[in-house]
């Protein structure tokens, strides 16, 4: 039987097919990276436990209403962009001592007796009406987180000479040796403890 020659497949249109697929994937690809403000919710509270009594000066109250007005400490109306500096001033005040009686030696604030005692005691409380727009709420959250970040950044630069972002990035690096990873973890923890992020949220009220 004569050997039959296998005809070669014409690959000329291969490029066209590939192009078609390429365009399909180009169009369907979404390269969005999910990002956002991370927050940890407080644990469920036992209703029988009395909440601790706080000094008024250690609480920075931010009130939001449905019109998007921001009322700080029940006396001054503020714009969103003023909030960060006000929060920094409050957190960084260091007018008194923490619960162990230590003075805040890294605070650079006014040391006013009318503002917070110590960053570890300072609490930011957000009270909002149910009808408040989510956009306003997030803008406020963002400014408050920014205030903490500014202060942590400062401490990190002073103590370790690198930015806090850089410190976090290095701590996350998986190529670190065990000793180095532990060391970085302690550093990150120390900075976080210097300015613990305590943001409390009251149940939204249903007034107009």
């Amino acid at each position: 039987m004569a050997k039959r020659a296998v005809p070669e497949i014409n690959a000329g249109s291969m490029a066209d097919i590939a192009f078609l697929l390429l365009i399909f994937f180009l169009v369907t690809t979404t390269m969005d990276i999910d990002s956002g403000i991370s927050r940890k919710l407080p644990e469920k509270q036992d209703p029988n436990v009395e909440p601790p009594i706080l000094k008024e000066k250690n609480v920075f109250v931010v009130n939001l209403n449905r019109n998007g007005d921001i009322l700080v400490e029940n006396e001054t109306f503020m714009k969103v962009n003023e909030l960060k500096d006000a929060a920094i001033e409050f957190l960084d005040n260091g007018g008194g001592t923490d619960k162990d009686g230590n003075k805040c030696d890294y605070c650079k604030g006014k040391k006013s007796i009318k503002s917070s005692d110590h960053p570890k005691k300072a609490i930011i409380s957000i009270e909002s009406a149910r009808g408040t727009k989510y956009g306003t709420y997030i803008a406020v959250q963002n400014e408050l987180v920014a205030a903490y970040n500014v202060l942590r950044e400062r401490s990190s630069n002073e103590l370790y000479g690198i930015t806090f972002d850089e410190l976090l990035k290095r701590a996350k690096d998986e190529n670190n040796s065990v000793a180095k990873a532990a060391d970085l973890k302690i550093k990150v923890k120390r900075i976080k403890e210097m300015f613990p992020m305590i943001i409390s949220e009251a149940e939204p009220v249903k007034f107009n």
Binding site: D34, S35, G36, I37, S38, R39, K40, L41, P42, E43, K44, L64, S128, A129, R130, G131, T132, K133, Y134, Y137, I138, Q141, N142, E201, E203, P204, K206
Partner: peptide, 24 residues
């Protein structure tokens, strides 16, 4: 409305799903 978000958050607290992220 923030009220809706609060309802979601209190539901999450009930079942101890505490890590949240506000997508922005």
């Amino acid at each position: 409305e923030v009220g809706t978000i609060y309802d979601i958050k209190s539901e999450l607290r009930e079942i101890n799903a505490l890590k949240i992220n506000y997508s922005t």
